[in-house]
Each structure stands twice: as structure tokens, then as C-alpha cells.
Amino acid sequence: MLKLNQVHTAIGGLQIIQNVSLEIGKGEFVALLGSNGAGKTTLFRTIAGVLKPHAGSVTFEGVPIDRLPVHKIVERGLVLCPQGRQLFPELSVQKNLLLGAYPIRGEKKRIQKNLDRVYALFPILRERINQKAGTFSGGEQQMLAIGRALMSEPKMLLLDEPSVGLAPLIVKLIADVISNINQEMDTTVFLSEQNANMALNITQRGYVLESGRCVLDGDCQHLKTDEKVRKAYIGA
């Protein structure tokens, strides 16, 4: 479904992503592990089209997308739920969610169905329909960001560090929801995490990124027992 072939990305002349190749099939649930500064966010921003790779290619469902503007990639069904959430702080919960449905604007029934689905996943959002997003706690903002990303019914969802800075209880809740999105909604999910423990427990397989290079990949059972992964990311 998603294929990266020898992707290189630089920011301001600095090489961040070096020669990354990976492939994710339809319906898969894959983790992207790496410490702070490994290049996870840059890689996701490259896939979403916010950054353009200077070498290599990104294809989604067989179509090259690395030269497309971001909104065209979203229209194809590949949506990034970004780190830092990137919500619209002065707009209400409802409006944030409706903007998430921008690619399917005009299709009232579909939008209402998706809205109900998001409220079912995160009942707290329904209680705060008219509250401004900027007044939310970190966990609530993360829920809203995930909800917003789901509003256009993406075929594939990129989740950039949804657990960062959140209390363990909220992390657990969000992990459950993400698994649910993958299993019940049949959405392909690519999850970036520093919290390797959480990620490896819910995903099927993973890639490990180090200084912008993909140094390891394999199924979760294998990664969990890998000496390097244990030392670096699980701390056991």
C-alpha cells in the first residue's frame, strides 16, 4: 500500500533521513521506533508531503506521491495525525472535527456517520462539542487530533507519537483506540513511538530508526527480544 524507496530528506541543508526503504501492506499495523531525534517525525512529514525528499520515491497504492501537494495526498486517503497535534485552538471541537472532514465536504450523511463514530470512540469529545480546542488538556487534544484525522475515513493513518507527554492511563486508552481503528475500521496504521513497550504490544511488526537510517525491522516478537531494542527502548 505504502512504499518508500531509498528516501533521503534534508532540512535546511542538514541530512535527516538517509536511504530509508520500507513497505506497508493493506490492513497492517506497523510501528516506527526510535529515540528522540532519530528522524521519525521527519520521515512522517516526508510521507505526508509536508517535506519533499531530495532523493528516492514514495508511492501510495502504486502512485508516486512525493511531488504532490499535501492536500492531494490527503484526498488519496493517506492522513497524518501530527506530533504536537496541530489543532485549531480557537475553534470548537465540532468545527475541528468538521474541518477534518474537509476532503469529503458536502457529503452530509457520511460526515454525520463519521462524527458519530469519533464521538463513540471518545465520548469526552461529545460532552465538549462547543469548547475551544485550545483549552483542552494534552490527552483530550490528542483524542481530538486522532478524531479529526479519522473524519475523512483515511485508508491509511500515520500517527506521530500519540503517547508523548500523556499520563499512563490515557496512553492505555489511546493505545486501545488505535488498535480498534486498525482492526474494526480496517484502516492501515503506521505508528511512530518512543514508547516501544506500548507500540510493540499492539502492532504486528516494526521498523527501528536510528540517526535517520533504518537499522532494524521485523515482527514484534522478534523486536521485543532483540538485545539492542531492549537496551535502547524498553530499558530492561
Binding site: 501537494p69 490527503v74 492522513v79 489543532l87 485549531f88 475553534l91 468538521l98 474537509y102 475523512s152
Partner: peptide, 18 residues
């Protein structure tokens, strides 16, 4: 609403397909 959205968060707006 997209005008407000772009003003408040340009990248957030792009990532919503605007």
C-alpha cells in the same frame, strides 16, 4: 471556516486536506 483554520494553524490545515 477554512480561512480561520489556515490563520490558526497553516500546517494543521494542510494536513486536513485544505
Amino acid at each position: 471556516t477554512t480561512i480561520e483554520a489556515v490563520a490558526q494553524n497553516r500546517e494543521g490545515a494542510m494536513l486536513n486536506g485544505i
